[in-house]
Design a protein around this nucleic acid. Structure first.
Length: 477
RNA sequence: GGCGGCUUGGCCAAGUGGUAAGGCGACGGCCUGCAAAGCCGUUAUUCUCCAGUUCGAAUCUGGAAGCCGCCUCCA
């Protein structure tokens, strides 16, 4: 089995064959840093983080580029609102973004270029387009890309340029030769960030930065380009036009687009006021719960964020960690263990267009198999059983390594869960221990009424007791 | 108006021609003083509806209904 990828452009799953053997060049559109990142950004970043991990695991040397759009109308507007410099704004949100993604256990891309640090490359790119007759400068105004100079315009989104009704959405700008032409370079208004150029002081349009930066780091033609579904048109369509017009080569071989995150079955929007920020979600849920949630459905489908779904994921992740803990307690080791057949199922799922939802099922199958084996054991675990359980546990951890979960020791995971669960309660771990000791004494003297009373008291505070062979433990229910 | 997507058990969700993965929940059992956790078992003769192709369809074709996204520098 080898990797197959659904290509937005062909609308088919295709066998993945990189341009250069054993190497993959991948570009993903990063955020425009004008505001706090929301759960939708998290999905895109986590999805492509898993793509990155899977490609690397598959033996490819991956050059993964994810940009920051740090010059943009929205950043300028925001800066004006706050009376700050645009650079302060973008730096602040880049920092925030990095902190949140680190918290979500997202690997840093190979390169994270910023538009403002590639102005010269952008200018050179625009000049090349002008020289080739693909773009034109309106004196005293913008440089525009000429749609009519690129006859494959629309091939990614499946739109026919002739069907695009001029002025239906955007006011017709009569400086353009064609209403569908888009800006490559726009003149700066007073007080706005600006760079000198052959067309006067100004700044780049949005689309051109991605073409210029992907060209610089990945070349004229590369393997994978990703982003959110909304970027298909016009952003990615325009990137294709720019890059293919400039170099006359296929720009990108595989286009990957992730679906949206809805909130309680509604689209996130300013008018609904339901923007759900990553930093707020991180306050409510363990980072691995968030990752597991984002990967629980196929990346191209919409996914709905709501409390019920999150609670289901918590139960599932607890279950996985509980098995790791149980296996380790039984003496299982994970280092240096060869992959087992559970891992093969996981690989099949991941190779099938990064089907994390299906891959997730193999984690639970692994746990089920392992628990069953351990349950059938008596007091002493035979070497054969231990070996089997070690393989299962190692497979599970290996899967977790791809999805970016199960990265903690189970003890730490459950301890952190207890601590966060106790936060805000007028009860601490010591107080619970005292109650447990009282209950142990009550049980020993067969005073089960008192024992149950204590248990009920704790249960009312969402603390659940478990009486095991080695005594009583508790957890947050 | 143009383009695209979705509709699977109580809920979430895989599954693109060969007879319905997985999770959560629920119920019964083992275990337990009773519970909890874990395990075992049960929980869709059926995949929005209609018609067609086929030996065979959730999967292909045509049609209907409902929902959703993009066409606004929103991931």
């Amino acid at each position: 089995m080898s990797l197959r990828i659904y290509n937005t452009q062909t609308r088919n799953k295709e066998a993945f064959v990189p341009l250069e053997e054993n190497k993959v060049k991948m570009y993903v559109c990063g955020p425009t840093v004008y505001d706090t990142s929301h759960i939708g950004h998290a999905r895109s970043v986590v999805v492509f983080d898993v793509v990155f991990r899977w490609l690397r695991h598959s033996g490819y040397e991956v050059c993964y580029v994810r940009n920051f759009t740090d010059v943009d109308d929205k950043i300028i507007n925001r800066a004006n609102e706050l009376g700050q410099d645009p650079k302060q704004i973008s730096e602040r949100y880049i920092n925030e973004f990095h902190n949140e993604m680190d918290a979500l256990n997202v690997l840093r891309p190979t390169i994270e270029p910023k538009a403002t640090e590639h102005i010269q490359e952008i200018i050179d790119f625009i000049q090349r387009l002008i020289d080739k007759g693909k773009a034109y400068h309106v004196p005293g105004s913008d440089v525009f890309f000429s749609i009519n100079s690129f006859d494959e315009y629309g091939k990614l989104s499946g739109r026919n340029p002739d069907d695009m009704v001029p002025g239906s959405r955007i006011a017709v700008d009569d400086k353009k030769r064609d209403p569908k032409d888009f800006t490559l370079w726009k003149p700066a208004k007073p007080g706005e960030p600006a760079w000198p150029s052959p067309w006067g002081d100004g700044r780049p349009g949005w689309h051109i930065e991605c073409s210029a930066m992907s060209y610089k780091y990945l070349g004229e033609s590369f393997d994978i380009h990703g982003g959110g579904k909304d970027l298909i048109f016009p952003h990615h369509e325009n990137e294709i036009a720019q890059s293919e017009a400039a170099f006359g080569k296929t720009f990108v071989r595989y286009w990957i687009h992730n679906g949206f995150v809805d909130i309680n079955n509604e689209k996130m929007s300013k008018s609904l006021g339901n923007f759900t920020m990553i930093k707020d979600v991180l306050k409510d849920y363990h980072p691995e719960v968030i990752r597991m949630f984002l990967l629980s459905k196929h990346y191209r489908s919409p996914i709905d964020y709501n409390d019920t779904s999150m609670d289901e994921v918590i139960s599932g992740l607890d279950r996985l960690y509980a098995f790791v803990e149980r296996a380790q307690d039984a003496g299982a080791t994970v280092s240096g263990i060869a992959p087992g057949k559970e891992w093969a199922s996981f690989e099949d799922a991941m190779d099938d267009d990064f089907n994390t939802a299906r891959a997730m099922a193999t984690l639970f199958d692994t746990v089920k198999t392992g628990n069953r084996i351990l349950d059938q054991q008596g007091e002493t675990v035979t070497p054969e059983t231990l070996s089997t359980v070690s393989t299962l546990c190692a497979d599970l951890k290996r899967m977790g390594g791809i999805l970016g979960i199960l990265s903690q020791e189970p003890q730490d995971y459950f301890r952190a869960k207890k601590e966060s669960g106790l936060a805000g309660k007028d009860l601490d771990g010591d107080a619970i221990e005292i109650l447990i000791q009282e209950r142990v004494a009550a049980r020993q003297s067969k005073n089960f009424a008192r024992a149950d009373e204590i248990r009920a008291e704790l249960e009312a505070m969402n603390i659940v007791l478990e009486d095991g062979p080695d005594g009583t433990t508790w957890k947050i229910g």
